[in-house]
């Protein structure tokens, strides 16, 4: 019967696609573009699963598997190590915080103080939000900003919210200030810049070649070309 054979085909396709056929890289949202550039020529081409480090780590802890995770915050790297899922950890890049605004603007600290709302990563768990809270606290501005925060799910979502005009100003990574529809404003002063460290975490011992590919000397140049600092 046609109907039954159709069902059989659908079932086979679904079972074949149940787990990804290529290695999965769980990448902090801010590193999506650089990781995609690094794996573009690999065969099989790894699947890049981009999201906030907090979400990705929780999924890996719940059994999501995967080859490598790029963590944007040492606390989340430590969480993976504590649960015994990190086979190897290698610092891979650094970043800086800047004020950002919709395309064509150049937000300054006055805009930050006056804006009706401020886009941050969700400071309760998203790395870019935790770094921003740390920096704004050191700068003495957190109490004044706290009530105006529009939390985003990850760094890219924060850039999307700025591009959509949700708020006139946000505090995001320098590397996300180049996204479509986003303009970089003043950088945060050196004195309040937190140490932002990205770690590559090997999850699957069989994926060590991919791990080396993402973190090796050739990869460093690609990270730098995307605006990231050395680890």
């Amino acid at each position: 019967m046609l109907f039954r054979s159709l069902l059989a085909v659908v079932a086979v396709v679904a079972i074949a696609c149940g787990r990804p056929q290529a290695p999965v890289i769980h990448a902090a949202a801010s590193t999506r573009a650089v990781v995609e550039a690094l794996v573009a020529d690999l065969d099989p081409r790894p699947i890049v699963d981009a999201g906030s480090t907090s979400t990705l780590v929780q999924q890996v802890q719940a059994g999501a598997g995967g080859a490598v995770l790029i963590s944007a915050h040492p606390d989340w790297t430590a969480a993976l190590e504590a649960s015994g899922l990190a086979r190897q950890v290698r610092p891979v890049a650094s970043n800086r915080l800047v004020l950002v605004g919709p395309a064509g603007t150049h937000p300054t600290v006055d805009d930050l103080d006056r804006a009706a709302c401020v886009v941050l990563g969700d400071p309760s768990h998203v790395p870019v939000g935790r770094y921003a809270r740390e920096a704004l606290t050191a700068w003495g501005r957190w109490p004044a900003v706290e009530g105006r925060v529009r939390p985003a799910l990850d760094a890219r979502a924060g850039a999307a919210a700025i591009a959509a005009g949700t708020c006139p100003v946000g505090v995001l990574y320098a590397t996300d200030a180049t996204a479509a529809g986003v303009s970089a404003g003043a950088p945060l002063p050196d004195a309040v810049q937190p140490v932002i460290r990205y770690d590559a975490v090997l999850l699957d011992p069989a994926a060590v070649a991919l791990f080396d590919h993402l973190t090796g000397p050739a990869a460093r140049a690609v990270w730098a070309a995307h605006g990231f600092g050395p680890p």
Partner: peptide
């Protein structure tokens, strides 16, 4: 490719600049 269904794809697109 594996679990990003239509609603999730739409949501992800909205969370991406451009």
């Amino acid at each position: 490719g594996t679990t990003r269904t239509l609603p999730l794809a739409l949501f992800t697109a909205l969370q991406t600049p451009g």
